[in-house]
Design a protein around this nucleic acid. Sequence first.
DNA 1: AAATATTCACTAATATATTAGCAATCTAGG
DNA 2: CCTAGATTGCTAATATATTAGTGAATATTT
Lengths: 145, 145
Amino acid sequence: MEDSPDMLARRNLPLLLLQAREHVFAHFRPILQRAGLTDQQWRIIRLLLETGPLEPRQIGEHCRISSPSLAGVLTRLEQMKLIRRTRLNRDLRRVSVSLTPRSRALAGRLAPRIEAVYCDIERRIGPDFCARFYRTLDQLIRAVR
Amino acid sequence: MEDSPDMLARRNLPLLLLQAREHVFAHFRPILQRAGLTDQQWRIIRLLLETGPLEPRQIGEHCRISSPSLAGVLTRLEQMKLIRRTRLNRDLRRVSVSLTPRSRALAGRLAPRIEAVYCDIERRIGPDFCARFYRTLDQLIRAVR
DNA sequence: AAATATTCACTAATATATTAGCAATCTAGG
DNA sequence: CCTAGATTGCTAATATATTAGTGAATATTT
């Protein structure tokens, strides 16, 4: 009844993905930190920048932030005047979240620095590797979802 | 001064990795949850199972858990009698963390269910895709580290 | 219309993440 | 010996994650 040393034969895939994310994100963190933004706050701003106003449910699903977490994050973003929350008249349960001029200006200042990091990463791993990797991740997500 | 719609031309790589991890981990979460374990707790147990006793610093680095988080996680694991902490005589600052019979038994019960999920995932994405993906992640981590 | 079920954003409680900082211990230089 | 510097694990404060559950509003059924 001893521990077989290969009780768990496979490598820890969720951990490997976490490690990859952490090592990549380490290059962006200083930029956001100097701007006074957390990871999640920037994820939301960046999403709204691409899509326009969204409802909390949609934001949470795309940014992988649970509804309870999102409540707090949106409250703080609203206090910083980086987002606005407005109730929908046609359905009073629902809320629309939109960016403010202030957050757009902030994103404008951050964008070039973010872009520079992507260039650096792409240079390290190679542009072809990079493009393939995006496709691979898309495939994985579709397959296990 | 309007928003150029491609201020941020690249896809959000850290988010994509997070999404991938979340979708993969969703398959394991129910197993750990029924066993009363959190993600981090299982990461630590699984690591020690492979390596034997380690110091908190080493655990944190491998499992991507910061020192302050680790302090709390280890305290709770100790209360559950799933790990033991012993001070090293040769250096009184340092601590050795080791598994208990109880956590080994728990891991033994969980291992087959974990394995089954890996088989399912491998079946969904294909064994060759899976093997390539592991190598790709290793390459990425090495390149950006 | 009335009763039921579902959806939505949110709160509560606990666990973990992040940043800063601390006391104790060890190491190296003077 | 002894003091400056580095290392280790930790605490404190705040932000976020997770699970469960709530009230209000809407949708569905009767």
